[in-house]
Simulated scan of single mutants.
Amino acid sequence: MSPVGSTVQVMTWNVQNASMFRAQNQLGWLRRVAPDVVVLTEVSAGPTGDRMARDLTDAGYSIQLPDPAPGADRYRVLLAARGFLTPVDTGLTVMPHRLTAARVLHADGGEFVVAGLYVPSRGPAEHRNVAKREFQQAVTDLLPKLAQQASATVPCIVTGDLNVVEPNHVPRYSVYRAWEYDFYRSFAASGFVDTYRLQSPHRVEHSWYGRPAKDGSRNGYRFDHCFVTAEHRDLVHACTYQHRPRQNELSDHSALTLTIRI
């Protein structure tokens, strides 16, 4: 077992389908901050994503990186951890390359389950919300199974870019429909708590911004989320956004880091 009070850092970050050049800068930043677990979303299904996986392997991480099926969309989720990964078979049949899950045996001896996901965006007008709604429903059905991966001493963490905001998001955007808010609510219904809200109940903070308006203002959205099984909420030490990579234009998303005791 790990020493009492030992912590791990679990980071999620949307890398914006990075080019090879930008990916190298992203990897340089990741090596400097050195989280224990990394969930990268919007990872290219081409050479850039494969290069990121190789470089993280060289940096001492174990890797899970699914390949999309022929004809599928080209965005996937990369899961990297310092320690030993045992894949969790989720049984997901809808865009399974957008969700990867594993049981992590950390180098210090602690054990936990991590699932990373990347929900599709609303999509083009001719297919608006079709893929998004189908994937959200599939994940909603899967969440109780993920919660069952936890035990008294093994928390389950679900994190990534949900492409939805919480029901009481500030500011409120009329574009979001009840079924999108229901997806956010499905985590609580399945036994998970929002770790950011656990630490910051009333704070207004955004991880992605839309295009500037004529007056220079930009709408902000809290798209990137992290949840943990409710029975392990007391293990959460901190959950914070890291805005520097977005501000430095390494990506259009901020990273989100959970620090949890194991």
Rank of each mutant, 00 (worst) to 15 (best):
D73A: 14
D108T: 13
A101V: 14
L79P: 08
A115V: 09
R128V: 10
R74A: 14
A150H: 01
V88T: 05
D73P: 15
V104R: 03
H106N: 10
F84G: 03
G71F: 12
D73I: 06
P66K: 00
T86W: 01
R128P: 10
Q137T: 04
G71A: 06
L142D: 01
G123D: 10
M95R: 10
S121I: 09
A150F: 03
L146S: 00
V119N: 03
T100K: 04
V119G: 10
R122V: 15
R122E: 15
R128H: 14
P120V: 01
F112V: 06
M95N: 13
D89I: 12
G109Q: 05
L143C: 04
L78P: 06
L65T: 07
G83E: 03
V77S: 06
V139D: 03
L92D: 01
Y75R: 12
V104S: 03
R76H: 10
S62N: 01
D89R: 08
V130H: 11
L85N: 02
H127R: 14
L78M: 11
R76N: 03
T140Y: 02
R82V: 12
L142Q: 02
M95G: 02
L65I: 12
A138E: 07
K132S: 00
Y118L: 07
G71N: 02
D73W: 06
R76V: 11
H106G: 09
Q64E: 09
A81Y: 08
F84V: 15
G110K: 06
Q136R: 09
H106V: 04
A131H: 12
D141W: 04
P96R: 06
T140P: 08
V114R: 05
A102L: 10
R74P: 03
A72C: 10
R76G: 13
L78I: 04
A147T: 07
P124G: 04
E111T: 07
A131L: 14
R103V: 13
P66D: 04
R103P: 11
A101M: 09
G109K: 02
G116K: 02
V114A: 05
Q137F: 10
T100W: 08
S121P: 14
R103E: 12
G91L: 09
A147S: 12
L85G: 00
